[in-house]
Design a protein around this nucleic acid. Structure first.
Lengths: 123, 123
DNA sequence: CCGACTGTCACGCAGCGTGAATGTAG
DNA sequence: TCTACATTCACGCTGCGTGACAGTCG
């Protein structure tokens, strides 16, 4: 199963909670490509790949596009030009914090509404 | 503008923060149809229509489908069979609370990640 | 009669779900 | 060899964005 500390897709799906389709899709759009393949063509993911998937998974509720997430994940991993990295991170961190705030507000509003629904249902 | 306490689409967009396209789309799929039209064809929304839009807007972060939201909104407004209403509401309220909880967790995870990003950016 | 607002198509796009038919690992 | 897991198409779906072009309101 663990050919040299590598994980195949099903294992990764279990670890991350992402679907096989989603993980494959992330390779299609070059967001999280597997570090290797078996001779027969099975995808092989390193622990670092899995970490990257977790980053993507955690950013998902903030509704960044997959393109944006690629940029962010790259910056976090120290890929690309050092200058660009800083600007990207700075920009996206601000944006991300804004989204967190708005999401918090939306969640609060949703919870209030659901409480109302509960009352209507229990009546 | 307010032909007898009715609002036209632009006003409704301002009130709710939804886009014109979104509001029109909600009519297309029969989620929030306007209560009337002007002679020339302009959509006219009552305050009750606006309230319904707000319900939909607040449920959005919970990622229900528009079909599900129609059912929920109908139940909240007391439309349809009384028996069905109760079962629908009960089912959906449970589901909604579950989604609120999961969203809270995801938000917490996102915030933690963003804090990490902030540290990486400020370094 | 002008400008701001609104109308209806209709195509485009993201992010996967969901088979179907086939091959690989062990 | 058997079977659990994996592969590649490729079409389908939701929820709008985004013009283009035309009509309405005051």
């Amino acid at each position: 199963m663990a050919t040299d500390g590598m994980h195949q897709i099903g294992e990764v799906a279990d670890l991350t909670g992402l679907s096989l389709r989603t993980i494959r899709h992330y390779e299609e759009v070059d967001l999280v490509p597997p570090s290797g393949r078996t001779a027969g063509g099975f995808r092989l993911y390193t622990d670092a790949d899995v970490d990257r998937l977790q980053v993507v998974k955690h950013l998902k509720p903030l509704r960044f596009t997959l393109d944006e997430m690629r940029t962010i994940a790259d910056a976090l991993e120290g890929r690309g030009d050092a200058e660009d990295r800083r600007t990207h991170l700075a920009t996206y961190v601000d944006e991300a914090e804004g989204r967190c705030g708005r999401l918090r507000e939306q969640l609060a509003a949703a919870e209030a509404l659901v409480a109302t629904m509960r009352r209507a249902a229990d009546r």
